[in-house]
């Protein structure tokens, strides 16, 4: 397979500093309210409920009082080599070459869920039911994002409508390029500890390009070569070791 040139165009990515993240859940709620995500009676059914950005809680497994807990917010990794794209029989999901964002076209999706099986990050969710908002709550739905129907797969879009909004504004002002903070997803904007940094990985002037050079930066399941554009930072060794299936002695201590 011909390797795609990822140095051209924008490559939007994220760096999440797990040392700063307190697991408060604001990113998840900002995401849900920005993207018209429905709610179920039983949100504890994690195989059926809808969340684009999931938060995982992990502990270092040590006994009291040595225990440590960290939280890993997990949006779609927007991989440069997305495993979900080639498996889609309906071409409902694709990588946008100008932004690097993996799109999902709901009306094209046939609900076969191959992409869900292919995604190693469990970033995709399936609508088992019609979207449901408790009585009266359809009044806060945003017209920027269409609610999804039953039987389709959906996932984090890096708030693509915000990119469209920013581009439209830039066009009106006669600019071609966006400023660094002109386009940021809702979760990044909402994070009260500013643990998430967003920017263009192809732009060396963006803060994110500097951050990913940190020896403490890593990605989830890096060795699958999916090339995620979501990076994490943690100064804790046990956290970085947990991010991939290392053989014993293979993990390199970078502290």
């Amino acid at each position: 397979m011909k390797k795609e040139d990822t140095t051209k165009g924008n490559r939007y990515g994220m760096v999440i500093d797990l040392d700063k993240c307190t697991g408060c859940g604001v990113c998840l709620i900002a995401c849900a309210s920005e993207n018209n995500i429905p709610v179920m009676y039983d949100e504890s059914d994690k195989t059926r409920n809808i969340t684009w950005l999931q938060i995982y809680m992990v502990t270092n497994g040590k006994e009291f009082p040595e225990t440590e807990v960290i939280y890993i917010p997990r949006p779609c990794m927007q991989c440069d080599n997305p495993p979900c794209v080639p498996v889609c029989p309906a071409t409902a999901t694709d990588k946008d070459p100008t932004s690097g964002i993996i799109s999902q076209i709901y009306t094209r999706c046939i609900g076969c869920r191959y992409c869900m099986a292919a995604c190693p990050y469990h970033a995709r969710v399936f609508n088992w039911f019609d979207p449901w908002f408790p009585e009266g709550m359809d009044r806060y739905l945003s017209p920027e994002v269409s609610p999804r129907m039953r039987g389709v797969v959906e996932k984090c879009s890096f708030c693509h409508h915000r990119l469209m909004r920013a581009k439209a504004k830039a066009n009106v002002e006669g600019r071609r390029d966006l400023k660094e903070d002109e386009y940021i997803p809702a979760c990044v904007e909402a994070c009260p500890t500013k643990a998430i940094t967003f920017g263009d990985l192809n732009n060396p002037k963006h803060k994110i390009s500097e951050l990913i050079k940190s020896p403490h930066a890593f990605r989830l399941l890096e060795r699958l070569n999916t090339e995620p554009k979501v990076y994490y930072i943690s100064t804790k060794n046990w956290v970085r070791r947990m991010a991939d299936n290392y053989l014993s002695g293979e993990f390199k201590d970078r502290s």
Binding site: G25, L28, I29, A32, S33, V39, E43, S44, D45, K46, N49, T51, I55, M57, P134
Partner: peptide
Amino acid sequence: PYLNKTLFD
């Protein structure tokens, strides 16, 4: 309800 989403199982 949105806060229910953030609770772990």
